[in-house]
């Protein structure tokens, strides 16, 4: 007589229970999931775009138009997926027989660590290897499936064994996991189908592959901001949801490094700032004025002053002959007298 070990016994019982559930009425739930959140997001972008257009904000409108383009593409893609996944019939023709589910559960024991089956709680869980994404160690995760919830909301959870949360957001344990809920992205359809058909090995494997993949374009918290946002000038880490930026280049900037342009009052970083060569005041690159011949950088006040001085010098040389110190007093700055300016306002090179 063939010996059945405890794991096999548990696997058989779990498989029968899973099969009973999937063959029941709850099986169809969740197979067709319309992209309602994405639709609402898209509507919000349209509203913002209309508002921006009404205000005549061209740059913001262009940016929102690009957002809308992306949203519509994603919406179309999700609707295509919905359509492609529409079952041909309500009959569970592809439901894996219990024997296949038993084989899946036993294979999970080879594929993962920490296989646990709880027949009373009707849950089955495995543990991933420690996950490292782009040099950020996130630790291992338990994937916990409650099989009576298959076809309903939140059939499974992804639980960090030793949570490595980003600063200032304890709900996020992985770029694609918030409150133990995985945002499945590209894996959504395959995960739903694997669960609905009782293919447990496929389900756990796809979830693991999502956890081992980083999509920077759609993460709850991007990995380069996992430990906060670094000030571009001094490197100080600021909270991800509360930091300033340079008004010119939009790089993150802490309050200590933030410089104020004397002319336009914008807050700027060191790379976007310059200093008036005459009075040493701080200016952004857009407000500084350049003396065409000498290339000197001046603030508007010093520039105007220098222009007046030059005009005054020209007037003196035309009216008084021969020119002398009594007829044409030297400017207040000796440097200005010895370094006549040829002033032409010129744009700062980019």
């Amino acid at each position: 007589m063939r010996q059945v070990n405890p794991l096999q016994r548990q696997a058989i019982r779990a498989a029968l229970s899973i099969h009973d559930h999937l063959a029941g009425t709850g099986r169809m739930n969740g197979l067709v999931k319309l992209p309602s959140p994405l639709w609402e997001d898209t509507q919000a972008v349209v509203s913002r775009l209309e508002f921006s257009l009404a205000r005549g904000w061209r740059a913001a409108s262009d940016s929102l138009l690009a957002d809308l383009d992306g949203s519509l593409r994603r919406l179309r893609s999700e609707l295509d997926t919905c359509h492609a996944n529409l079952p041909r019939a309500t009959v569970a023709s592809k439901l894996a027989p219990p024997g296949e589910t038993v084989a899946d559960i036993l294979a999970l024991d080879d594929e993962f660590d920490g296989l646990t089956i709880d027949l009373q709680e009707k849950l089955i869980q495995v543990q991933t290897d420690p996950i490292v994404l782009e040099d950020t160690a996130l630790g291992s995760f338990r994937i916990v499936l409650r099989w009576e919830q298959i076809g309903r909301h939140r059939a499974y959870e992804v639980v960090a064994d030793t949570p490595c949360c980003p600063e200032h957001d304890d709900d996020v344990t992985h770029p694609h996991v918030r409150e133990q809920l995985l945002c499945e992205g590209e894996g959504a359809a395959a995960i739903r189908r694997a669960l609905a058909e009782g293919r447990l090995l496929d389900f756990f494997t796809i979830v693991r592959q999502v956890l081992e993949t980083y999509n920077a374009g759609s993460a709850y918290v991007q990995l380069d901001r996992w430990n906060g946002v670094a000030c571009r000038d001094c490197g100080y880490h600021m909270p991800d949801n509360d930091y300033g930026t340079c008004d010119r280049c939009e790089d993150p900037l802490c309050s200590e490094c933030s410089l104020g342009c004397q002319k336009c009052d914008r807050y700027i970083c060191s790379a976007c700032s310059t200093t008036c060569e005459k009075c040493d005041c701080c200016l952004c690159e857009c407000c500084v004025q350049v003396v065409a011949d000498t290339g000197r950088l001046l603030c508007p006040t010093c520039f105007d002053q220098a222009l007046e001085e030059e005009n005054h010098d020209d007037a003196c040389s035309e009216e008084v002959s021969p020119p002398g110190p009594a007829a044409c007093p030297a400017p207040a700055g000796a440097a200005a007298a010895t370094d006549p300016l040829c002033l032409v306002e010129a744009p700062v090179p980019a």
């Binding site: 796809i206 993949t213 999509n215």
Partner: peptide, 27 residues
């Protein structure tokens, strides 16, 4: 359910699965 070499010949009733290594999640 087992890894195999690419030149393995399939047999009647085999179960073959292809799972992408990279599956991008979202938020």
């Amino acid at each position: 359910r087992q890894p195999v070499p690419s030149d393995q010949v399939l047999r009647e009733g085999d179960r073959i699965s292809f799972t992408p290594i990279k599956v991008e999640g979202a938020r």
